[in-house]
Nucleic acid binder design. Structure first.
Lengths: 340, 340
DNA sequence: ATGAAAGCGCTAACAG
DNA sequence: CTGTTAGCGCTTTCAT
C-alpha cells in the first residue's frame, strides 16, 4: 500500500564512506561537534554528507529523542482571512524544530468535537485551537500542551491567548455614541462562541454606560460567512431602520461585509442612513465600499503569540500562561454621525 | 532543551496489562486483526487500549515502516485568499495518513530558493509548490515527490496541476471585445512567474485575434498586493484614459482590488469610464464595489487535485502526472460597454 | 492464533 | 577525541 520512499543516504552510509562511526556523523550533522570532534574529521564528515546528500531522518531523530515535533492548528475555517492571518503568525514564530500541520473541520462550517478528536488521536507535540466554542472545550480532554486562541474561555489545563474585548467594546461604543448613535443593532452568530458573546456584552455594557443601547433583538446567524450575513440582513435591515436603529455592529468583519451588501441592495445609504462597524479588522475591510470601521483584533499577532507560547511550552523556554492582546479601533467611512 | 513529552501508554504497557504480546497489540491497534487474532483477545486488547488511552506513536510507526508522512505546502503568501483556498483543498483531500505542514517564505513577500531549501532540507514525504517562478524551479532539485501548482512550468521530475489559461484568456478577450473594448491595459507583477506571463499572453493573443490589443506598456508591480497595486494604478490610470484605454485586466484579483480603489480615489467611474477585470476569482471579488468581473481559476479545486495527486504518488493509488483545470469567466459589474 | 526477535535510523551515555 | 552500545516504540517475518 505505501510506497517505499526514495532511497536516501543514512548516517551509516556516511560513516562507512568516511571511515568514522555513526555517532560522529550524528554529532557533526547536528552541529554538536564543537570540542568533541577534530576539525579535520569534521571536515571529512561534512564532505561525505555533501557527497551523499545526507540529511538527518527526522522521524528516527524524534523517536530517539523521545520527542514529538508536530503542532496542529485547527480553526473553524482556514479560508477566513482572520484565521489565515493567525496561521501566518504561528508559522512565522514557531521554532524551526517544530512543524505545524493544519486540520480542517470535516463537515464544512464550524468544527466539532470529532475534528478535534481526530487531532487528539494522533500523537502531537502541541495543539492550537482557534476560537473554540464552550461545548467543544467541555467535550475534550487535552492529550498534549494546548493553546486556546480567542476563545473567551479559560481551562486550567490549557494556555490561552485572548483579545482585549473590553477595550474593543469600549472604543466602539465611544465612537458610535460620540457620533450621536443611541439605538444600535447587533449581528452575531449562533453557536456557543464565548468570544463573540463577550464582544457583544462588552459593547452592550459600554453602550448602556453612555446612554445608548442595543435596541432590537440581535440578528443571529447560523454561520460566519458573508453570504449568510447578506441573507440575514436583507430580512431585517428595513425594519431596523423603521425602529430607529442608526448603527449596526457585527461580531466579525465578514458579517459586516454581508450587511454592507444588503444595505446597498436595499438602497439604504451607508453611513448616511445607517452606520456599520465590525470586529476583526481584515485586509478587505479597507477595501469594501464604504470602507468598514472596525476593531482591529490583531489576528497575526494572535498567531505569533501562540507560536511563541508553544515554543515555550515545548522547548522549555517559557511557562505556559495566559495573554491578552490589545484591540484598537480603526474608523473608516462606514460610520458617520447619526441621522436625525 | 526539549521537554519530555507527557508520559503516554505504549504498546508494551497495553500488552502487559492485557497479558499478550506487543505484536498482538500492534495488530489490533492497526485494525489488522482480522483472521489473525481471536475476537476474544481482540476485545481484551481493545479494552486495554481504552483503559490506558493508548494511541499508536506515529513517529515510531513511521520509522518502523520506513515511511515519511509529512507533506509540505509552500506558497508565496498564506494570507492571500487564493492560497488559502488551495490550502483548504489540499488538506481536505490529502489522505489521513499523511499530514500537511505549511511553510512560509522567511523574507516576507515571495518565496525564494532558501525557503524551498528549508523544506528540502527536512525529510518530507512530498512537497507542493504553489505558483513557483521559473528561476526558483531551476535552482532546486527535488528530494521527494513534488507537485507544481499553477506554475505554468513543466519539469520532467515533478508533477503539475495547471490552470487552463488559454480558455481564460479567450473568455476574457471575448467578453471585453464583445463590449466594444479595443484598447486594453494590463497589470501584472514582475518576478519570473510563468503563470502570470501565460495569462497575459493568452489574453493578448486572443485580443489581437479580435482586432483589439494591449495598447500601452504593462503596469508591472513588484509585489502582488492590493496596496502596491493601488499605488501603481494611482500613477498611471489617468494617463491610460487619456491614451484611450477603456479596460484594464489584472493578472490577479488582488491587484484588481487596488486598481478599483485607485479609480475611485481618482474619481474615475468604473465601469462607465473604465472597465476592470481580473484573474483568480476570490471570495471578495463579488463583494468589492463595483463587483469585479473575473476569471475563476478554481483555487480550491487546484488544491484538491494536488491532494489527490499526492495521495497517488505516496500511497501508490495512482501515478504522478499533469492535469489542467478548467477556467471560467464570471461577469460582474466592473465591466460594461466601452465608452464612446 | 500468538509470541519472540530483528530491525527502522538515530541519539546519548559510556568506554576507551 | 572517537567508537561501542543500548535503546526510542513500533511493525513484521518467522517460529511455535
Amino acid at each position: 500500500m505505501s510506497l517505499t520512499p526514495a532511497p536516501r543516504a543514512t548516517a551509516r552510509d556516511v560513516a562507512q564512506l568516511v571511515g568514522v562511526s555513526v555517532a560522529t556523523v550524528s554529532l557533526v550533522a547536528n552541529g554538536k561537534a564543537a570540542g568533541r570532534v577534530t576539525p579535520q574529521t569534521r571536515e571529512r564528515v561534512l564532505a561525505g554528507i555533501r557527497q551523499l546528500d545526507y540529511r538527518v531522518n527526522t522521524t528516527a531523530s524524534a523517536l530517539a529523542q523521545g520527542r514529538r515535533e508536530t503542532v496542529a492548528f485547527v480553526s473553524p475555517d482556514p479560508t477566513n482571512p482572520f484565521f489565515s492571518l493567525v496561521l501566518e503568525g504561528i508559522v512565522d514564530e514557531l521554532d524551526d524544530s517544530l512543524s505545524l500541520t493544519v486540520l480542517v473541520p470535516s463537515h464544512g462550517d464550524d468544527y466539532d468535537p470529532s475534528t478535534v478528536q481526530r487531532a487528539l488521536a494522533g500523537d502531537l507535540a502541541g495543539l492550537v485551537l482557534a476560537s473554540p466554542g464552550r461545548t467543544l472545550l467541555d467535550s475534550i480532554a487535552p492529550t498534549c500542551p494546548t493553546i486556546l486562541l480567542d476563545s473567551g474561555e479559560t481551562r486550567v489545563d490549557m494556555a490561552s491567548v485572548d483579545l482585549d474585548v473590553e477595550t474593543a467594546g469600549l472604543q466602539l461604543a465611544d465612537h458610535l455614541v460620540g457620533l450621536g448613535h443611541r439605538r444600535v443593532a447587533y449581528v452575531g452568530v449562533g453557536r456557543d462562541k464565548a468570544t463573540l458573546q463577550h464582544r457583544r456584552e462588552a459593547l452592550h455594557e459600554q453602550l448602556v454606560l453612555r446612554g445608548a443601547d442595543l435596541a432590537v433583538p440581535d440578528l443571529t446567524l447560523q454561520r460566519m460567512t458573508t453570504a449568510v450575513a447578506l441573507d440575514g440582513a436583507l430580512a431585517v435591515l428595513s425594519r431596523w431602520i423603521d425602529e430607529g436603529i442608526t448603527a449596526v455592529v457585527c461580531g466579525d468583519d465578514l458579517l459586516a461585509y454581508g450587511v454592507l451588501q444588503a444595505a446597498r441592495r436595499l438602497g439604504i445609504d451607508v453611513p448616511a442612513t445607517l452606520s456599520v462597524a465590525g470586529f476583526n479588522d481584515l485586509p478587505y475591510s479597507a477595501m469594501v465600499s464604504p470602507a468598514l470601521t472596525s476593531v482591529d483584533l490583531s489576528a497575526r499577532e494572535l498567531g505569533a503569540s501562540a507560536g511563541r507560547a508553544m515554543n515555550g511550552m515545548l522547548l522549555g523556554t517559557a511557562p505556559a500562561g495566559r495573554a491578552t492582546l490589545r484591540a484598537r479601533l480603526i474608523a473608516r467611512e462606514s460610520t458617520a454621525a447619526a441621522r436625525g
